[in-house]
């Protein structure tokens, strides 16, 4: 299998980038998309060129570190799939594949396809936790949580923090990411004491980081590998309103 990879190359955060095309031969359908990039990098090394910098770690769709724009879509042509779980069988021999980094003001480019997503960590820092010290926990079954509530919390908690929601959103909004964490914790009894504070502070940080506003296009939930539903954003907004009124 042979494809042309048209890849965004940018030396550093401050330099100007541009697309470069690489004819990449010797691929197979069973290869993952990232393995194809590995393969390209080996060819580049032997040609004495710098490798393409891209993110990855677990390569099984759970760590959230990988993520690039492929032919105009976050994580490539399929819904709900991380870049590492995309395989070359999704492309045809002779295809040109356009590969770009996430584009968002809050995710500055570090190099080539790598961006800085630490803005997400700083949103978590503003209350994406339950304030409880190690050693203070009551007996686990003393807190009863119905299966429905627990399952719903888990649906939101499944977010892997990859940033595809931001990258695919025309406003570069982080509403899906932020709402997932807020709803995970605020729907559980353990998260309730800090519920209002959490929603106010996390949403404030989201704005400070330069993410855009949500206009409910629904683009985010189409790409989300963890299938976080857009209804989380509505729920977050309701929680926000309640917190504003009550605090």
């Amino acid at each position: 299998m042979k494809v042309t990879c048209k890849i965004w190359r940018q030396e550093s955060a401050d330099s100007k980038g541009n697309f470069k095309s690489y004819e990449t031969d010797g691929l197979t359908e069973d290869m993952s998309f990232l393995e194809a990039l590995d393969h390209l990098n080996e060819i580049l090394v032997l040609k004495n060129e710098r490798v393409v910098a891209f993110e990855y770690d677990c390569r099984e769709g759970i760590c959230g570190q990988c993520g690039v724009f492929i032919n105009g879509r976050a994580h490539g042509p399929h819904d709900h799939v991380t870049t590492c779980q995309l395989h070359m069988r999704s492309f045809k021999d002779g295809d040109t594949i356009v590969i770009e980094p996430w584009r968002a003001n809050a995710f500055p480019i570090l190099k080539d396809l790598m961006v800085d997503r630490s803005a997400f960590d700083r949103i978590i820092e503003q209350g994406g936790f339950i304030t409880a010290k190690t050693g203070t926990a009551p007996e686990a079954n003393a807190i009863l949580i119905s299966k429905e509530v627990s399952d719903k919390s888990m649906d939101a908690a499944a977010c892997i923090g990859c940033g595809a929601c931001v990258a695919t959103c025309k406003n570069a909004s982080a509403a899906l990411f932020t709402s997932a964490k807020i709803n995970h914790l605020n729907s559980l009894p353990q998260g309730r004491p800090e519920a209002h504070k959490r929603v106010l502070e996390m949403t404030q940080q989201m704005q400070l980081e330069g993410f855009g506003s949500c206009t409910y296009t629904g683009a985010c939930e189409v790409e989300c590998p963890a299938e976080i539903s857009i209804s989380n954003i509505a729920e977050m907004n309701a929680r926000y309103l309640k917190a504003k009124l009550l605090s």
Partner: peptide, 22 residues
């Protein structure tokens, strides 16, 4: 055993029965 208590307190959504126990 205390570790499970600890993680429940931190908000880990462990699987539960309909009655609410783990």
């Amino acid at each position: 055993a205390p570790l499970i208590d600890h993680f429940v307190q931190q908000g880990v959504p462990f699987a539960r029965e309909y009655g609410g126990v783990l």
